[in-house]
C-alpha cells in the first residue's frame, strides 16, 4: 500500500471517530434529547456490527478449510469456553491466541 494511502486511511478514521464523539456537542447544543428511533438504533447497532466483524475475522477460512479453518475454529472455541468459564478478557485472549499460534503449523 502506498504511503499516502496509509496516511489518508488513518486520517479518515481519526476524523470520523472524533466527529462521532463531538456530534452531540455540535448538533444538540444544550438540548439533551435524541429522537427515539435514533436512540433505539444506537442500542441495536453495536451487537449487529460486532457480529459482522466476527464474520470479517473468519473470512479467510474459505481459502484453506483445513490449514486455516480448523485452527481458527478450535481457537474460537477455546475463547468462548474460557470466557464463559472465567469471564477474564486477559485469560481468553492469551489462551486463544497462543492456541491458534501453536495449532497453525500443525494443520
Amino acid at each position: 500500500m502506498k504511503h499516502t494511502t496509509v496516511i489518508a486511511t488513518i486520517l479518515v478514521t481519526a476524523v470520523t471517530t472524533f466527529a462521532l464523539r463531538a456530534a452531540p456537542s455540535v448538533i444538540f447544543h444544550g438540548q439533551r434529547k435524541m429522537p427515539d428511533w435514533l436512540d433505539r438504533l444506537g442500542k441495536m447497532l453495536p451487537s449487529a456490527i460486532m457480529a459482522v466483524l466476527i464474520v470479517y475475522c473468519l473470512k479467510d477460512i474459505g481459502d484453506d478449510w483445513i490449514g486455516i479453518g480448523i485452527p481458527r475454529m478450535l481457537a474460537v472455541a477455546i475463547v468462548v469456553f474460557s470466557y464463559k468459564w472465567k469471564h477474564s478478557t486477559l485469560l481468553s485472549i492469551v489462551s486463544g491466541t497462543a492456541a491458534y499460534m501453536l495449532f497453525l503449523p500443525l494443520f
Binding site: P46, I54, C57, V76, Y83, S92, I93, G96, L104
Partner: peptide
C-alpha cells in the same frame, strides 16, 4: 515468529460479542 498473533483481534471481538449477548 509471531505468525497467528492476528487472532487476538478475533478473540477480542468474540469476547465483546459474548458480553453484548
Amino acid at each position: 515468529d509471531l505468525m497467528g498473533i492476528d487472532f487476538c483481534m478475533t478473540a477480542l471481538f468474540v469476547i465483546i460479542c459474548i458480553d453484548q449477548w
